[in-house]
Nucleic acid binder design. Structure first.
Lengths: 389, 389
DNA sequence: GCGAATATTTAACTTCTTCAAGTATTGATT
DNA sequence: AATCAATACTTGAAGAAGTTAAATATTCGC
């Protein structure tokens, strides 16, 4: 993380304080005793850790509303997050657009903004990020000093700890210290993370992954990616590669993939692959993905078969994740899932066939993803940088 | 872990002490300063943590042999493990045999023993484990009181923390509290772990996986399995399933697998699948695996092709591991690798083709595995239970 | 109003760690 | 040979973080 200003006061960094803050943030209002049990601390320790968090305005006590147990006893005063204590900007950088959001401490989106991106040059991107930030700050109704952090996400090989973009294929960047540069421009504390990993982090802390020791998020679109949380932590990959579900080989007789492999999931179920196949099957060389979806929905058997095969390939990829790391649950999402109805059952069928034994018990959530979610993911990483040391 | 006797004194459980002991155990002799840097502690903390470990005889100081830095300065007195401070029994249970070893604190095998297993009944296995333990203890040349712990490993679904065998396919066991039962018989502190995970733990602490934040071990044989270490910890799988590389789908047109899937790695490269294919290709319905290997080595093209295809399937599975979790290194081993020469190059070729980008940089060690290694894995888990809380 | 049950707080104490200063041991320099 | 600089290790005081045990708070059921 890179600071724009010199000091950046935050919550206490002591282990117990961090644990308490994280648990309240992700697991909603909880009483101190429940926290103590959950975190393996004494309740005295929770009381002590909570006080400064309350004093600093990050947490507050809820009125004791509901009874806890069955019988008597003093009712709990659950701890809850003050969502408006601090706000976070999240920016997702795509090839042709910047998408920005402002989120509160609970990662609720408060406002959004966009800017087109025409020039992939570093300087041009920095300028646009600065403008987008100004737009978001300008439209912010509250105290602007409560926005001190900004998260960026983009696809590619990113070093989160140093804020370095090692390689971005679509921007043609190599070794750009994006975190430092944006921190200088905006004066905010900046985090940078891979887009899929950021989305996974958001889902892990604020979505369906809450409380899961291990968790996977699969995104379906032009690319097919996957973020993994194992043993409670995001998987990074020793060589910067992890979660590349799109390049698992699932069909020895499948098409060659641009990655050099054969029968990769992405070469069967990526948007480009689907369009290409649909063009072949219909004989229409200018067919678009939207038209292909429309034809399939209209009952065009040849085109439906393309989606069926794609869904099966994705299901195999997801089963591979379940068989290898055994996550508690898996969320499947992404732009590609606008055509959700064409995929859903084939993904499930293929997953259930290929998942080994109890791995098939892993619940699958298949749902489309609003595009702002990507920017929210970046904001979620920024929130994590506040909470964790 | 289950204790046979009431108390079982061990090294101090404080975080720093555990960290120091683990680091010295796995990373050989190290000076205190180096440890401090490595573990993020002050050198004072290391000194204090090391003293009781030395007093209890677990560690000792080496004579300052070699100069550390380039110039002047007091030479270091590296800390090393006293390998003969304590010994550990490891037992691997297979369908027809028990394999036992005695290891020292550095997981060096000191002696081995075997017993045939004719009856899969729980009571019969307990008796044989008891006899094997007696054999090993009887032949032990040193102070028998230095053997206080025993590790068991077997394939199947095992709950390490409770010592429960949830399901063992080859013994037809369900929910057998093996840890407790063996502890009662032997009076030793017992750990139970899945065989592949145990082997992975051994390799992680005492083999090629030392120092790796993430690491994978693939075993090739009748079954094809995989143990994973991610973020420094063994992956367990939320539903008890993890590392099932044998049931990744790599060939949509491949054979049906006994697991219900299609084109699984194991249905192409498992020993049974290889034998079946070789029988078809040679027209000899009683061909054995050894004969198939001999034919392939002799240049029989049809049989060679079976091994080629198997190697490719394994390579795809390994690439899936590299693409998904990005381990620092991967070790490939197992009985099946007696035919190492027939597999090696095909595994590598397929891996390199299918590994995505930098994931291909992950070093692959392909080597056969002495059968005692499985028992050593069980002993290694037992050693871990001494060191960790 | 009383006692049982549960939640939270307080205060004394324990444990672990760091900090700062000192000791130990060596090679290089004079 | 004496001294200095460099590095490794140790010591003791001080601090941080957590625990236990006892006190306090608040409710329900009688």
């Amino acid at each position: 993380m890179f600071r724009g200003s010199d000091t950046l006061a935050g919550p206490p960094a002591a282990p117990a304080a961090t644990a308490v803050f994280t648990a309240v943030l992700t697991e909603g209002p909880v009483s101190r005793v429940a926290l103590a049990r959950r975190l393996g601390l004494s309740s005295a320790a929770v009381t002590k850790a909570a006080r400064p968090l309350i004093d600093l305005g990050y947490l507050h006590e809820l009125a004791a509303t509901e009874r806890t147990g069955p019988g008597a006893g003093r009712p709990a005063s659950p701890l809850a997050v003050r969502a408006d204590r601090e706000f976070f900007i999240g920016v997702k950088i795509t090839a042709d657009e910047l998408i920005g959001v402002v989120c509160d401490l609970r990662a609720q989106v408060r406002s959004t903004a966009r800017r087109p991106l025409t020039d992939p040059d570093v300087e041009a991107v920095l300028i646009e990020v600065g403008r987008l930030t100004d737009d978001l700050l300008g439209a912010f109704p509250g105290d602007r000093a409560r926005i001190r952090r900004l998260g960026l996400s983009l696809s590619g090989d990113i070093d989160r700890t140093t804020g370095l973009v090692r390689y971005s294929p679509f921007l043609h960047w190599r070794d750009v210290p994006l975190g430092r540069l944006v921190a200088q421009r905006t004066g905010l504390a900046v985090t940078v993370e891979n887009d899929v990993k950021a989305l996974t982090a958001a889902e892990h802390w604020f979505g369906e992954g809450v409380g899961a020791e291990s968790f996977a998020l699969v995104t379906v679109g032009t690319g097919i990616g996957c973020g993994l949380v194992v043993n409670g932590r995001l998987v990074s990959g020793s060589y910067g590669v992890a979660g590349e579900i799109g390049h698992l080989a699932v069909d020895a007789t499948g098409p060659d993939c641009h990655c050099g492999g054969r029968g990769c999931v992405e070469s069967i179920a990526g948007t480009d692959a689907i369009v290409a196949q649909a063009r072949v099957r219909t004989g229409r060389p200018d067919l678009t993905i939207d038209e292909a979806v429309a034809l399939a929905r209209g009952g065009h058997e040849q085109v439906r078969a393309v989606f069926t095969r794609a869904g099966s390939a994705i299901g195999c990829g997801i089963a591979a994740v379940a068989n290898l790391v055994g996550p508690t649950r898996i969320v499947v999402s992404g732009e590609g899932l606008a055509a959700y109805d064409l995929f859903d059952s084939h993904i499930r069928t293929s997953f259930e066939r290929q998942a080994f034994g109890a791995a098939a018990r892993c619940p699958l959530s298949i749902r489309p993803l609003p595009f702002e979610e990507w920017a929210r993911g970046a904001a979620a990483v920024s929130i994590q940088s506040l909470v964790l040391p």
